[in-house]
Design a protein around this nucleic acid. Sequence first.
DNA 1: CCAGACGTTGTT
DNA 2: GTCTGG
DNA 3: CCAGACGTTGTT
DNA 4: GTCTGG
Length: 230
Amino acid sequence: MCGRFNVVSAPLTQFIMEILDSDTPVPHLSTEYNIAPTEQVQVVYTEADRRCLASMRWWLVPHWAPEPSTKYSMFNAKSETLATSRAFRDSFKSRRCIVPVSGYYEWRTEQSVKVPYYVEADADKGLALAGLWDRWEKDERVVYSCTIVTAEAPQSMQALHRRIPVHLNRAEITQWLAVETATESLAALLAPTLRVPLKITPVSSYVNNARHKDSRCVEPTGPSVRIALD
DNA sequence: CCAGACGTTGTT
DNA sequence: GTCTGG
DNA sequence: CCAGACGTTGTT
DNA sequence: GTCTGG
Protein backbone atom coordinates (compact mmCIF):
# COMPACT_ATOMS: atom_id res chain seq x y z
CA MET A 1 0.00 0.00 0.00
CA CYS A 2 1.18 3.52 0.39
CA GLY A 3 0.86 5.22 3.74
CA ARG A 4 3.84 7.55 3.86
CA PHE A 5 5.84 9.40 1.23
CA ASN A 6 8.37 12.00 0.44
CA VAL A 7 8.75 15.19 -1.55
CA VAL A 8 12.26 16.52 -2.12
CA SER A 9 11.85 19.93 -3.66
CA ALA A 10 14.40 20.54 -6.40
CA PRO A 11 14.38 17.25 -8.31
CA LEU A 12 10.66 16.76 -7.87
CA THR A 13 9.83 20.24 -9.09
CA GLN A 14 11.73 19.37 -12.26
CA PHE A 15 9.76 16.13 -12.60
CA ILE A 16 6.45 17.96 -12.11
CA MET A 17 7.40 20.57 -14.72
CA GLU A 18 7.87 17.74 -17.17
CA ILE A 19 4.38 16.38 -16.59
CA LEU A 20 2.63 19.76 -16.50
CA ASP A 21 1.91 21.84 -19.59
CA SER A 22 4.99 23.79 -20.63
CA ASP A 23 3.36 27.19 -20.10
CA THR A 24 2.17 26.45 -16.57
CA PRO A 25 3.99 28.55 -13.95
CA VAL A 26 6.74 26.87 -11.93
CA PRO A 27 5.14 25.42 -8.82
CA HIS A 28 6.55 26.05 -5.39
CA LEU A 29 7.17 22.85 -3.46
CA SER A 30 8.67 22.55 -0.02
CA THR A 31 10.76 19.52 0.91
CA GLU A 32 8.85 17.07 3.10
CA TYR A 33 10.61 13.86 4.12
CA ASN A 34 7.72 12.11 5.82
CA ILE A 35 4.23 12.98 4.65
CA ALA A 36 1.44 11.07 6.40
CA PRO A 37 -2.24 10.55 5.59
CA THR A 38 -4.45 13.62 6.31
CA GLU A 39 -1.62 16.03 5.46
CA GLN A 40 -1.83 18.43 2.49
CA VAL A 41 -0.09 17.19 -0.66
CA GLN A 42 0.51 18.54 -4.17
CA VAL A 43 -1.58 16.91 -6.87
CA VAL A 44 -1.63 17.16 -10.68
CA TYR A 45 -5.13 17.05 -12.13
CA THR A 46 -6.99 18.10 -15.26
CA GLU A 47 -9.16 21.19 -15.35
CA ALA A 48 -10.57 22.59 -18.58
CA ASP A 49 -8.24 20.33 -20.59
CA ARG A 50 -5.19 21.64 -18.80
CA ARG A 51 -2.91 20.01 -16.26
CA CYS A 52 -2.92 21.92 -12.98
CA LEU A 53 -1.15 21.57 -9.67
CA ALA A 54 -3.16 21.96 -6.49
CA SER A 55 -2.80 21.32 -2.78
CA MET A 56 -5.19 18.67 -1.49
CA ARG A 57 -5.78 16.76 1.72
CA TRP A 58 -4.45 13.20 1.50
CA TRP A 59 -7.58 11.37 2.68
CA LEU A 60 -10.48 11.41 0.29
CA VAL A 61 -13.65 13.16 1.41
CA PRO A 62 -16.44 12.18 -1.01
CA HIS A 63 -18.55 15.14 -2.14
CA TRP A 64 -21.59 13.65 -0.40
CA ALA A 65 -19.92 13.10 2.99
CA PRO A 66 -21.76 14.82 5.85
CA GLU A 67 -18.41 16.03 7.24
CA PRO A 68 -14.72 15.44 6.49
CA SER A 69 -13.90 12.42 8.63
CA THR A 70 -11.30 9.70 9.08
CA LYS A 71 -13.84 7.08 10.11
CA TYR A 72 -13.16 5.10 6.95
CA SER A 73 -9.72 4.37 5.58
CA MET A 74 -9.70 6.59 2.50
CA PHE A 75 -6.04 7.44 1.88
CA ASN A 76 -5.70 4.43 -0.43
CA ALA A 77 -8.22 3.09 -2.96
CA LYS A 78 -8.18 -0.52 -4.16
CA SER A 79 -7.80 -0.62 -7.93
CA GLU A 80 -9.95 -3.76 -8.13
CA THR A 81 -13.10 -2.00 -6.94
CA LEU A 82 -12.68 1.58 -8.18
CA ALA A 83 -15.47 1.16 -10.72
CA THR A 84 -18.05 -0.13 -8.25
CA SER A 85 -17.14 1.46 -4.92
CA ARG A 86 -19.68 4.12 -3.89
CA ALA A 87 -16.89 6.17 -2.36
CA PHE A 88 -14.59 6.12 -5.38
CA ARG A 89 -16.43 5.43 -8.62
CA ASP A 90 -17.42 9.02 -9.47
CA SER A 91 -13.86 10.16 -8.94
CA PHE A 92 -12.57 7.19 -10.96
CA LYS A 93 -14.74 8.24 -13.90
CA SER A 94 -13.92 11.92 -14.00
CA ARG A 95 -11.52 13.02 -11.27
CA ARG A 96 -8.31 11.07 -11.70
CA CYS A 97 -5.05 12.70 -10.67
CA ILE A 98 -1.35 12.13 -10.26
CA VAL A 99 0.37 12.36 -6.90
CA PRO A 100 3.98 13.21 -7.71
CA VAL A 101 6.40 11.90 -5.08
CA SER A 102 10.15 11.68 -4.74
CA GLY A 103 9.69 8.29 -3.14
CA TYR A 104 7.46 6.42 -0.74
CA TYR A 105 7.89 4.11 2.23
CA GLU A 106 6.74 0.53 2.72
CA TRP A 107 7.11 -1.52 5.90
CA ARG A 108 7.98 -5.21 5.79
CA THR A 109 7.64 -7.43 8.84
CA GLU A 110 10.92 -9.25 9.39
CA GLN A 111 11.05 -11.54 12.44
CA SER A 112 8.08 -9.64 13.90
CA VAL A 113 9.82 -6.28 13.48
CA LYS A 114 8.53 -3.74 10.96
CA VAL A 115 11.38 -2.55 8.76
CA PRO A 116 10.84 0.54 6.59
CA TYR A 117 12.03 0.65 2.98
CA TYR A 118 12.30 3.68 0.74
CA VAL A 119 11.11 3.17 -2.84
CA GLU A 120 12.17 5.64 -5.54
CA ALA A 121 12.51 5.77 -9.31
CA ASP A 122 15.78 4.32 -10.55
CA ALA A 123 16.05 6.47 -13.66
CA ASP A 124 13.89 9.51 -13.06
CA LYS A 125 13.51 12.43 -10.65
CA GLY A 126 10.19 11.31 -9.24
CA LEU A 127 7.38 8.82 -9.31
CA ALA A 128 3.89 9.50 -10.64
CA LEU A 129 1.40 7.69 -8.43
CA ALA A 130 -2.14 7.16 -9.69
CA GLY A 131 -4.70 8.99 -7.58
CA LEU A 132 -8.29 10.21 -7.40
CA TRP A 133 -9.61 13.49 -6.03
CA ASP A 134 -12.90 15.04 -4.99
CA ARG A 135 -14.29 18.37 -3.87
CA TRP A 136 -16.39 18.67 -0.72
CA GLU A 137 -18.32 21.76 0.26
CA LYS A 138 -20.58 22.72 3.13
CA ASP A 139 -21.50 26.19 4.30
CA GLU A 140 -18.34 28.23 3.75
CA ARG A 141 -16.00 25.27 3.94
CA VAL A 142 -14.44 23.73 0.82
CA VAL A 143 -12.11 20.72 0.98
CA TYR A 144 -10.19 19.31 -1.95
CA SER A 145 -8.92 15.86 -1.13
CA CYS A 146 -7.21 12.91 -2.79
CA THR A 147 -6.38 9.23 -2.43
CA ILE A 148 -3.64 7.00 -3.87
CA VAL A 149 -4.66 3.94 -5.87
CA THR A 150 -3.16 0.60 -4.84
CA ALA A 151 -2.89 -2.67 -6.74
CA GLU A 152 -1.47 -6.14 -6.31
CA ALA A 153 2.33 -5.91 -6.40
CA PRO A 154 4.11 -7.24 -9.50
CA GLN A 155 6.10 -10.43 -8.98
CA SER A 156 9.35 -8.48 -8.71
CA MET A 157 8.03 -6.49 -5.74
CA GLN A 158 6.17 -9.21 -3.85
CA ALA A 159 9.19 -9.66 -1.58
CA LEU A 160 8.70 -6.11 -0.37
CA HIS A 161 4.92 -5.96 -0.06
CA ARG A 162 1.78 -7.66 -1.33
CA ARG A 163 0.23 -4.39 -2.47
CA ILE A 164 1.83 -1.22 -3.79
CA PRO A 165 0.72 2.15 -5.17
CA VAL A 166 0.18 2.28 -8.94
CA HIS A 167 3.22 3.83 -10.68
CA LEU A 168 2.61 5.40 -14.07
CA ASN A 169 5.11 6.02 -16.86
CA ARG A 170 4.88 9.10 -19.12
CA ALA A 171 2.46 7.58 -21.63
CA GLU A 172 0.28 6.24 -18.83
CA ILE A 173 0.18 9.63 -17.10
CA THR A 174 -1.42 11.05 -20.23
CA GLN A 175 -4.01 8.29 -20.36
CA TRP A 176 -4.81 8.50 -16.66
CA LEU A 177 -5.21 12.29 -16.65
CA ALA A 178 -7.33 12.51 -19.81
CA VAL A 179 -10.93 12.97 -18.69
CA GLU A 180 -12.19 11.37 -21.91
CA THR A 181 -10.36 8.08 -21.29
CA ALA A 182 -12.92 5.33 -20.69
CA THR A 183 -12.29 3.61 -17.37
CA GLU A 184 -12.40 0.21 -19.11
CA SER A 185 -9.24 1.09 -21.01
CA LEU A 186 -7.33 1.78 -17.80
CA ALA A 187 -7.17 -1.90 -16.80
CA ALA A 188 -3.64 -2.30 -18.16
CA LEU A 189 -2.39 0.52 -15.95
CA LEU A 190 -3.74 -1.23 -12.87
CA ALA A 191 -2.30 -4.65 -13.75
CA PRO A 192 0.49 -6.12 -11.59
CA THR A 193 3.26 -5.24 -14.04
CA LEU A 194 6.26 -3.08 -13.20
CA ARG A 195 6.49 -0.36 -15.85
CA VAL A 196 8.83 2.05 -14.03
CA PRO A 197 12.30 0.88 -12.89
CA LEU A 198 12.76 1.27 -9.14
CA LYS A 199 15.41 1.43 -6.45
CA ILE A 200 14.58 0.13 -2.99
CA THR A 201 16.64 0.92 0.10
CA PRO A 202 16.14 -0.13 3.74
CA VAL A 203 16.01 2.96 5.95
CA SER A 204 16.13 3.87 9.61
CA SER A 205 13.02 3.25 11.73
CA TYR A 206 13.28 6.95 12.53
CA VAL A 207 10.72 7.39 9.77
CA ASN A 208 8.14 5.34 11.70
CA ASN A 209 7.17 8.37 13.76
CA ALA A 210 5.19 10.73 11.52
CA ARG A 211 6.39 13.67 13.62
CA HIS A 212 9.92 13.12 12.36
CA LYS A 213 10.16 15.36 9.31
CA ASP A 214 13.89 15.71 8.59
CA SER A 215 16.26 13.93 6.23
CA ARG A 216 17.15 11.23 8.74
CA CYS A 217 13.97 9.55 7.46
CA VAL A 218 15.83 8.46 4.32
CA GLU A 219 19.03 7.40 6.08
CA PRO A 220 19.99 4.04 4.54
CA THR A 221 20.60 1.07 6.81
CA GLY A 222 21.72 -1.31 4.08
CA PRO A 223 22.39 -1.68 0.37
CA SER A 224 19.86 -0.69 -2.29
CA VAL A 225 18.26 -3.16 -4.66
CA ARG A 226 17.36 -2.21 -8.21
CA ILE A 227 14.25 -3.60 -9.85
CA ALA A 228 14.09 -3.71 -13.63
CA LEU A 229 11.03 -3.43 -15.85
CA ASP A 230 8.92 -6.54 -16.39
C1' DC B 1 -40.16 1.54 3.26
C1' DC B 2 -36.12 3.61 6.40
C1' DA B 3 -31.40 3.19 8.38
C1' DG B 4 -26.90 2.94 7.77
C1' DA B 5 -22.87 2.28 5.17
C1' DC B 6 -19.80 4.20 2.03
C1' DG B 7 -12.54 1.83 3.42
C1' DT B 8 -7.70 -0.47 3.52
C1' DT B 9 -4.22 -3.91 4.96
C1' DG B 10 -2.58 -7.57 7.39
C1' DT B 11 -2.82 -11.40 10.66
C1' DT B 12 -3.79 -15.12 13.86
C1' DG C 1 -8.62 -3.43 21.35
C1' DT C 2 -9.52 0.69 18.78
C1' DC C 3 -9.47 5.41 17.58
C1' DT C 4 -7.00 9.85 16.69
C1' DG C 5 -3.21 12.59 15.16
C1' DG C 6 0.73 13.36 12.32
C1' DC D 1 1.39 4.08 7.30
C1' DC D 2 2.94 4.12 12.65
C1' DA D 3 2.68 6.12 17.42
C1' DG D 4 0.24 7.15 21.15
C1' DA D 5 -3.79 7.89 23.60
C1' DC D 6 -7.52 5.90 25.84
C1' DG D 7 -9.83 10.55 31.70
C1' DT D 8 -11.66 13.77 35.30
C1' DT D 9 -11.84 17.85 38.24
C1' DG D 10 -9.95 21.71 39.77
C1' DT D 11 -5.96 24.76 40.09
C1' DT D 12 -1.53 27.58 39.61
C1' DG E 1 -25.54 10.86 -3.52
C1' DT E 2 -26.62 6.01 -3.86
C1' DC E 3 -26.65 1.27 -2.62
C1' DT E 4 -27.42 -2.59 0.72
C1' DG E 5 -29.68 -4.80 4.46
C1' DG E 6 -33.56 -5.54 7.33
